[in-house]
Design a protein around this nucleic acid. Structure first.
Lengths: 197, 197
DNA sequence: GTCTATACACAGATAGAC
DNA sequence: GTCTATCTGTGTATAGAC
């Protein structure tokens, strides 16, 4: 409880990451300065370096945390049986998870080109793991004769692009509610792979 | 034919735009310096300002030119009858046009947030016009009972996201040829709106 | 039309006082 | 743990020679 005056390490770190995420999403990593991030948090630029070795690590950590959380949440879903039910579940999950974290999603998808090569490789591996979960569903459904797909890899990428696109327009309190949007997207995803609506 | 020594205005302008497009696509607008662009072209940084008033205009012009060309090419397609044929044509066109201009597409989709407000409004209006062409097809198809769609606006955005996603992975000379990819995407687009494959 | 030189602002990052 | 001050590099953009 009792701490020295001016000592806030437990909350300043998360606040720095939150501010960086918001600013990176809004203006882009390269366009945001460490001074801007510090100003958002209410500290001086030099203080940031107590929490991150450099700007690049700040970006890479945000992206890794996002993708780690995404995979963890996917794995925590209740088990369902059958490729159709699994794809429906995946689509709804993807929409819901992305709708709730527009900034994190935006950064993770837009700032790949600003990662240095080791960070890029690590982040790409995580993304690939996530895509592989969807592709496994599509492969199983095709093997079971439930999906009509010329190419599972292409379908995987097409579906992910379609679903992730929700972040381009969805706004809290808009014309369509979250559950409604999840349902419509899941329906389109199922139809796209040949499941009759 | 005969020109003064060192005078290259007719080709330097396009070369500057081409270099800027390539660099912006690769590294992002904010991460690319005027000096880098000049170096690509083989001139000094100061010389760029004979062709563009500033860096922002260079970006806005690239994006406007891309979207103008996209709309013009769409309008130049041969007329086809029926919503199914029109959607098939639109999907193939979108894939083909985007596959051929990965850099221009990337810049037009990723650098919106780096546009100043007047430029942003102009570019957004062009993008909206393009989306409206697709939405008109979906509305007509739904009215004719050919498409099953809960919401044409949402479906428009979902389809465009799916189709545009091709630029994230398609590479010339890869496993799948261009016509093949166009066909698979068009098929998924039609199925997604409820047309039986 | 292009170059060299430069003005001026701001970037990322570090040192040392408190 | 944070601040002030500062180092060093680089950014956009312009002026003036050729």
């Amino acid at each position: 409880m009792a701490r020295k005056t001016g000592s806030h390490s437990e909350i300043t770190g998360p606040r720095i990451r939150a501010a960086a995420e918001r600013l990176f999403a809004r203006h882009g990593y390269a366009a945001v300065s460490m001074r801007q991030i510090a100003a958002e948090v209410g500290v001086q630029a030099g203080a940031l370096y107590l929490y991150t070795p450099d700007k690049q690590s700040l970006l890479a950590d945000l992206m890794r945390d996002h993708l780690d959380g995404l995979l963890e949440a996917l794995d925590a879903l209740p088990a369902v049986t059958g490729a159709v039910a699994r794809l429906d579940q995946f689509a709804r999950f993807h929409i819901g998870y992305h709708i709730e974290r527009p900034d994190a999603v935006f950064v993770a998808y837009m700032e790949l080109r600003n990662l240095e090569s080791e960070n890029f490789a690590a982040i790409e591996a995580l993304r690939r793991r996530y895509e592989d979960r969807l592709e496994a569903i599509l492969r199983d459904g095709r093997a079971a004769g439930q999906f009509a797909l010329p190419d599972t890899k292409l379908a995987t990428l097409a579906l992910i692009a379609m679903l992730t696109g929700v972040t381009n327009w969805y706004r809290e309190g808009g014309r369509l509610g979250r559950a409604e949007v999840e349902g419509i997207y899941a329906d389109m995803a199922l139809k796209a792979v040949g499941v009759a609506g």
